[in-house]
Design a protein around this nucleic acid. Structure first.
Lengths: 302, 302
DNA sequence: TAAAAATACTCCATAGGTATTTTAT
DNA sequence: ATAAAATACCTATGGAGTATTTTTA
């Protein structure tokens, strides 16, 4: 049986006042029950904590040691109260976030710094994973939040669209069409294409293929890139042309031009989480994602 | 107001069993009061700790954090119990011990190792001080135990004789008398003497002087040594002869011979402590000193 | 002798028990 | 239908109060 924290609190008061009467006053208590409580503590421990006479109260060596420990325990106890409240409020804790690689070029880094300043007490564990992997992990509790491409969703999970983007054509800077602001995709029918790897994201591969078919040709896929930056980089080196989500235009690589073209397909990113996730911290982060991307992506969608 | 440790204990049981009924059984308690106690804890914190239905109990994130902290607090609380008991029993704590330099050649080091193995939890703070300094410090609480030479003792202090030793003559190994086992002090009347410094220990100076006067001569004191080993060392270098407590014969310095001679004076060492010292640990150490020196010095006194 | 701790008692708040209802599988 | 948590109610331990005695500087 542990020492009652009430008795520790009383003990600390007496140890600091070195007077039962003064300590009782400080505790808003009358003196007799306090004397009784300390006696009770001493009996319980089997140890004298105070040398007392009617004129003088002093700590024994055991009492001195208990004083240090009691202060520590009470302080920590009070801190725990705060900690639990902060976790409940979503101000403290850990959030495990998965993301598809393309989010690195869609404002995820900026969001993370925003997030860090908003919730400095929260540790964010990030993993780059493809959509299927994230769906499995979120369902099993291995991830709190997933940032994935549109995918069939089990009823265990909730999904919400975070970002909808059109695509742009990506050509080498020296390409004959690079000066145009807008072209018809069909013009590029004969070019070698760089697609996003179907092994990594079948969804993207399908979308790109569909665009070409809608434009009336079957593309020659010369390379399959496993990251969007690789695709842009290959274009810059003249290995072919590509179709990339518009936000890639801001990736900063030299030697490429981006051109608008007509298409109905969109790159859609969703955030997913476990349906029954009761954690306030996770919901706070979902809210932050929703607001952040609504504010940035909304007006730029045209 | 801190969290009641009883509630923490109940909480830990439920968190580990993930069942109110099983936890109640483990706590030798019926289920309703336990449910009530946890509800009380949750209300007090203003935080949900368990997700519960009639079939399933699970920790919320705040509950998980509280579980870790609660385990820690309860463990430490239990440890404090032990610590306080061990201090009370004199098995843990600190003892401040003062000693006159000569104790270094009278078994103090050996006693310390004995002491360390007997009370491994105790920290011993040692200071080499002369008798007067020790008496002052013990009276003011700056020292727990003093090892001093016989001295007037105030009524604040208790003194107990620890060691009574005769003296021996200390001559250079090449001295004409060095081969004898027993001599008359008067024979050395003309020799230069090395005395213990009167500034450091007037008692010893007086004792040595008295022996010479009893033998019928006034000695020529060529050097005053501030440590007994210095005295023996000076003798070894042929600077004179000395009279030293018999235990110095075992100090290990080469080049000197020790001779018995008739005298009534004795080197007396006492241990002193504050009369009202309630500390068990100090008394344990006093007991250990008493027993140790009684066992070693007793038979060798002849 | 005066101030502070200890003792004696009284009361009621609450920890814990029993009986029962609700809920989710 | 059943097992487990929640609710309702009751009992009694013990925490806290008032009055008084004891102790020592």
């Amino acid at each position: 049986m542990e020492i009652d924290s009430r008795l520790l609190r009383y003990f600390v008061a007496v140890a600091e006042e070195l007077s039962f009467s003064r300590a009782a006053a400080r505790l808003h208590l009358s003196q007799p029950p306090l004397s009784h409580a300390i006696r009770q503590l001493e009996d319980n421990l089997g140890v004298r904590l105070f040398e007392r006479s009617s004129r003088h109260v002093a700590l024994t060596p055991a009492g001195q040691a208990l004083y240090k420990e009691a202060r520590f325990l009470l302080q920590r106890n009070a801190d725990v109260r705060q900690l639990v409240r902060r976790i409940h409020a979503g101000l403290e804790g850990e959030v495990k976030i998965g993301f598809v690689g393309s989010m690195l070029y869609r404002g995820l880094p900026a969001w993370l710094t925003h997030c860090q300043s908003r919730y400095p007490g929260v540790a964010r564990a990030l993993q780059e994973l493809n959509s299927a992997e994230q769906i499995g992990l979120v369902a099993r509790g291995g991830l709190d939040i997933g940032l994935v491409h549109a995918n069939p969703v089990t009823d265990e999970l909730t999904a919400e669209t975070l970002l909808i983007e059109p695509f742009v054509l990506c050509l080498p800077a020296g390409h004959v069409l690079a000066g145009n602001g807008h072209v018809d995709l069909a013009v590029l029918a004969g070019e070698p294409f760089i697609f996003f790897a179907s092994a990594v994201s079948p969804v993207y591969y399908e979308l790109l293929l569909r665009m070409c078919l809608d434009a009336g040709f079957m593309p020659t896929v010369r390379y399959e890139a496993r990251h969007w930056l690789s695709a842009v980089s290959l274009v810059a080196q003249g290995m072919g042309v590509s179709i990339v989500p518009r936000s890639l235009a801001a990736c900063g690589l030299e030697g490429v031009a981006y051109l608008r073209f007509d298409h109905t397909q969109r790159s859609e990113t969703q955030m997913i989480w476990a349906r029954g996730s009761a954690s306030r911290i996770v919901h706070n982060h979902l809210d932050l994602l929703r607001d952040w991307f609504a504010a940035r992506a909304g007006p730029a969608l045209d």
